[in-house]
Simulated assay, not measured.
Amino acid sequence: MGAICAGPRFLAKAGVLNDVKYTTSIINWTETHVQNFKEEDPFPRQNFIVDRVVRDKNVITAQGYAFIDFAVEILDYFDGFEDEEDKNNFIKITKGI
């Protein structure tokens, strides 16, 4: 299961994030969020990690700007790489490093 940017909000509402580490682009739930979404903060903040991408058990979450990292973690989860070197080469190619 995966979500990027503000998408982890839906995983939080479903209770999926209660027992896993995660990240989201919604760093703080502000009064604007309360007004727009008509709800209090749905995130279990004790599990929140500020990082580009977080993979815990079968849940992959990412900040919105980390879309390449998110894709790499999904590919890795589904054994899309032959080995760590293959994964690192893919990252270098996609990021132009």
Rank of each mutant, 00 (worst) to 15 (best):
F78M: 07
N88L: 12
V59Y: 10
A66I: 00
F78L: 14
G64L: 01
A62R: 04
G80N: 06
K57C: 02
I26H: 01
N88D: 14
W29T: 03
G15D: 12
E39C: 12
P8L: 07
V53K: 02
D41G: 06
N89E: 14
R52G: 12
E73K: 05
V59S: 08
D41R: 09
S25W: 03
E85K: 13
F37K: 11
N18A: 09
K13H: 00
Y65T: 14
L17M: 10
N58D: 15
V20T: 14
A6P: 15
D86P: 13
F48Y: 15
M1T: 14
F37Y: 15
I26N: 02
I4F: 08
Q46L: 06
A66K: 00
T61P: 08
E84A: 13
S25R: 05
K92W: 00
Q46T: 13
Q35Y: 10
K38N: 10
T94V: 15
T32Q: 12
Q46F: 06
L75V: 12
G96F: 08
K95A: 01
G64H: 04
V50E: 15
T61V: 09
F90E: 07
K95S: 06
I91G: 03
G64W: 00
I91A: 04
F81E: 08
A62I: 09
F70Q: 04
S25H: 04
L17C: 09
G64I: 03
K57H: 10
I97S: 11
T32D: 12
F78R: 08
K87R: 15
E40N: 15
H33A: 09
D76W: 07
N58Q: 10
V72T: 14
V34N: 10
V16F: 00
E39Y: 11
I93D: 12
G64Y: 02
N88S: 08
T61E: 07
E85W: 05
V53H: 06
R55N: 07
F67M: 05
L17K: 10
Y77E: 09
N18C: 01
F78S: 06
G7C: 08
I68S: 00
D51Y: 03
F90S: 05
L75W: 05
N58F: 01
N89P: 03
G15M: 13
T23S: 01
V16S: 01
R45G: 03
A12S: 11
L11R: 01
K92Q: 11
F37I: 12
T32E: 13
M1N: 09
F48G: 02
G7S: 14
I27E: 15
E31N: 13
T30W: 06
N58I: 01
N18F: 00
D41W: 11
A12P: 12
F43V: 13
E39I: 11
N89W: 07
I97C: 09
N58A: 02
L75G: 05
F10P: 01
W29I: 07
E85N: 11
E84I: 05
P8Q: 08
Q63C: 07
A3G: 14
I68W: 02
V54R: 04
D69V: 03
D51T: 00
E84R: 06
D41T: 10
D56W: 02
H33W: 11
P8T: 05
D86V: 10
E73S: 07
I91F: 03
D19V: 05
Y65A: 09
D86K: 07
